[in-house]
């Protein structure tokens, strides 16, 4: 059984979407997280760094932003800037929700 699994797993698999909240400090290090520990931490760190980048570049463009949202087909990421860091909410968007989550703007 284990032998066959080696050949037949993987390609058609689907990665679980992250659910929960993370906070990152100004260097992009994760300070707190409610996302499952099974979820790859490097992906969460990447989200944190990208979000901080977007806040900092918006300031450079003289359009400082307090909140940034990235809406994908099946995941919604909302980030709020904190003093020096950010709090990031990760919501999978599924049809199992009673009402679809609307983006604020």
């Amino acid at each position: 059984m284990g032998f066959l699994k080696r050949f037949f797993r993987g390609r058609a698999g689907v990665q679980q979407l992250p659910t929960g909240t993370i906070t990152v400090d100004r260097q992009g290090r994760i300070v707190t997280s409610t996302v499952s520990s099974a979820y790859p931490q490097n992906f969460l760190r990447e989200i944190g760094r990208d979000v901080l980048d977007l806040f900092s570049e918006a300031r450079t463009a003289q359009m400082p932003l307090a909140e940034i949202s990235l809406q994908f087909g099946s995941l919604h990421i909302t980030a709020r800037e904190l003093r020096g860091g950010a709090i990031i909410f990760l919501f999978p968007q599924t049809a199992l929700l009673a009402t679809p989550t609307r983006s604020r703007p």
């Binding site: 992906f43 932003l65 909140e67 940034i68 949202s69 809406q71 994908f72 995941l75 604020r104 703007p105």
Partner: peptide, 17 residues
């Protein structure tokens, strides 16, 4: 990010102050 997380296509990016 959409590619890495397998979250589907980007629908939009929004920001506010």
């Amino acid at each position: 990010l959409g590619e890495q997380l397998e979250a589907g296509p980007v629908m939009q990016v929004t920001g506010q102050n």
